[in-house]
Design a protein around this nucleic acid. Sequence first.
RNA 1: GGGCGCAUAGCUCAGUUGGUUAGAGCACCUGCCUUACAAGCAGGGGGUCAGGGGUUCGAGUCCCUUUGCGCCCACCA
Length: 843
Amino acid sequence: MPEKPTIDGLEERWSTVWQEQGTYAFDRSKTRDEVYSIDTPPPTVSGSLHVGHVFSYTHTDTIARYQRMRGREVFYPMGWDDNGLPTERRVQNYYGVRCDPSLPYEPTFEPPDKPGKQQVPISRRNFVELCERLTAEDELTFEALWRRLGLSVDWSMTYATIDEASRTASQRAFLRNLARGEAYQAEAPTLWDVTFRTAVAQAELKDEERAAAYHRITFRRPDGGGIDIETTRPELLPACVALVAHPDDARYQPLFGTHVSTPVFGVQVPVVAHRLADPEKGSGIAMICTFGDTTDVTWWRELQLPTRAILGRDGRVVADQPPGLDSAPAREAYARLAGLTVHSAREAMVGLLRESGDLVGEPRPIMHMVKFYDKGDKPLEVVTSRQWYIRNGGRNEVLRDALVARGHEITWHPSFMRSRYENWVQGLNGDWLVSRQRFFGVPFPVWYALDSDGNPIYDTPLTPDESLLPVDPSSECPSGYTADQRDVPGGFTADPDVMDTWATSSLSPQIVSGWARDEDLFARVFPMDLRPQGHDIIRTWLFASVVRAHTEFGTVPWKHAAISGWILDPDRKKMGKSAGNALTPVGMLEEHGSDAARYWAASGRPGTDTAFDASQMKIGRRLAIKILNASKFTLTFGPEENLALVTEPLDQSLLAELSGVVDRATKAFDGYEYTRALEVAESFFWAFCDNYVELVKERAYGARGEAAATSARATLATALSVQLRLFAPFLPFVTEEVWSWWQTGSIHRASWPSVDELAVGQGDPAVLSASSVALSALRKAKSEQKLSMRAELAAATVSGPEAEVTSVEAAAEDLRAAGHVLGALVFVPDDTPQLTVTVTLPS
RNA sequence: GGGCGCAUAGCUCAGUUGGUUAGAGCACCUGCCUUACAAGCAGGGGGUCAGGGGUUCGAGUCCCUUUGCGCCCACCA
């Protein structure tokens, strides 16, 4: 025991010891019912960890530590999300390379020392290798932070979402989805990001308000009259395939079934009726283009309209005019748009309309909501492309209901988060689009045979045997083919796409559990106990995980979902967005200490947003220091914990009270209310220090003989042991430090305190509570007289309800010592409702 | 437009099936060098529980309603 204990440096010391001694190592000999398994969220390594990570990962760690002390073998791996676009961009910039999947693999490739102006094109495999090299460095930094924070992770069990096990699991799950008909491909219009040149899924959308303008444009009726429509996308006029109005709209009913001609291009398009047309909007009649937005897609599909697509995957107007624009003026007009971006094409189109006189008035500026890819900054377009989908209930009621039902099998913390899940599932409007036209990611393990003209035969994809996974179809051959048959007629071609990052991370329970890789482990940990995560990714990570477990195993992936809230700035803005609040987690831990930061984090309940609050960390730091000091003091009386020696009513009372605290903290933790568990322990601890320790101090020193002293000492040691264990999940460093002063082994492998170990016969909590009230009254008398707490009193009288007075009397000598009452201390029951203490000051 | 959540002391928040006089910490004020801790300790002031209505012997808590804030979804011609 140090002379002057300090919390500084405990992080380095104990994180090293825990690693050396394998304190948190998972014992895989345990069976499923003995295990508590956690599906840790893999942080994105290409970004940096922020304060919010410290916050939410601490929550999970308190639960892990509690379960471990309860005797569960905790399966608590850590993953790294190094898959997907953020990593791809970081690698491009860091090494000055870009991925070109058509290139062959170069085993000896080394990136330039300094990224040059021109990015070096490299093969997918080379690119993936660079991703792995860079993320390996990032992962070390992350791990160091987590160790410093004290996460009780088994660091021998890390995984990465681009590593071989993850690629294998992703491809295996996909092949099984495909075999069961749960995965399919379709050529269809999909939302498309022109910057990243990839399709995006419904779950990855965000809405933003943007400036636009209504353009009023005149179409020509057969009788020569005009009909005006309003559009924000005049550049799509050459893509117009129909006009649409509501079936009940009397203004346009006479036109249904007739044709009108488009201005400038003179294309004949039908006037059709559809319920989605809003009579209140614009002129009540809209032009349908292929494709301006998802409503266009609905109209196009349901009304079986022709396709006249003009936007390419790069977001520019394609060179060749679409079918129907065959007249010379149409071709001439189209040529002025070809090759332009959407923005430029719009200006050009407005010019054309002015020339032809078909623009009515001036464009009218408006603000409206536009769909964006959540990582993109250009509005999404709709482009037709061949994509892979996984059925998620978006087009099938039976499956949708089954997935909603799975949501009921999960215990949500807090419970209302389930409605977010249900809202999302019930609002799905299509299946899950899982293919992305990117390079760094898990490739689809699929090839297509090429016919004699070199066209892929999509209906019968070629797939590898599962034993060969993972495969890279761009560098490996399908069974029965040789490399020289790649991309030649009669040969084969690789599916060029990679999977959506969620297609991999949705399998995190399977990946960490060793599905199809380590079936022994899998049987011991899956389905898992806990998925901790943020509420922003319920619709993505959580839902997709449920889909994958449902289809493959017919089960939920975990029993509990703990949904953490946001970390907000002190000014209640979401943290991390603005530049002014760039507080690094390392800086926070260095400044306040890990236990203190964890104390603050533990004050955030599941699902509740919490403001960053340095003052909370100061309180946590104070608590940790107090624990050191109080422990040191307590242990000066010896470590004897024998309850048979606890004979004094006050001591028995203390242990009875503590027993109730243990009960409440345990119930709170069982309900995932770690915040309450901490609060219960903390409030008891301060009262323990301020009242109980003060009352028994003199007796423990031996003022009233050996038996009375022994009773106090055994109580102090027992209460300390129990309280340290109550704090251990929250303050792992300081509790471990104190534990090491007189116990063997780690406190984090000690057993959670039980009510049974505090059974001391007829302990009456009232003795302590009434004595504490009396002690406070003595202090108040001194405080009001501006006396030192050590000032002596000539006499004191305790009066009030008989039960309370009797309770105080049971600890009379302790009260006398703590209050420094020299003379008479008398007890007078009376009819007053409250305990009253009157004192006589020394003359 | 649909769904979910929040509103309690100057600040951050507890308040567990409805039950004495609504709590804690921070901040503030007044004191105290007290041999575990001055990074400490003791004491104190401070609230119409967002507004209104209802149920009840009794409402911060249950019901209805209004207002304000936050989030999710839908709508996007």
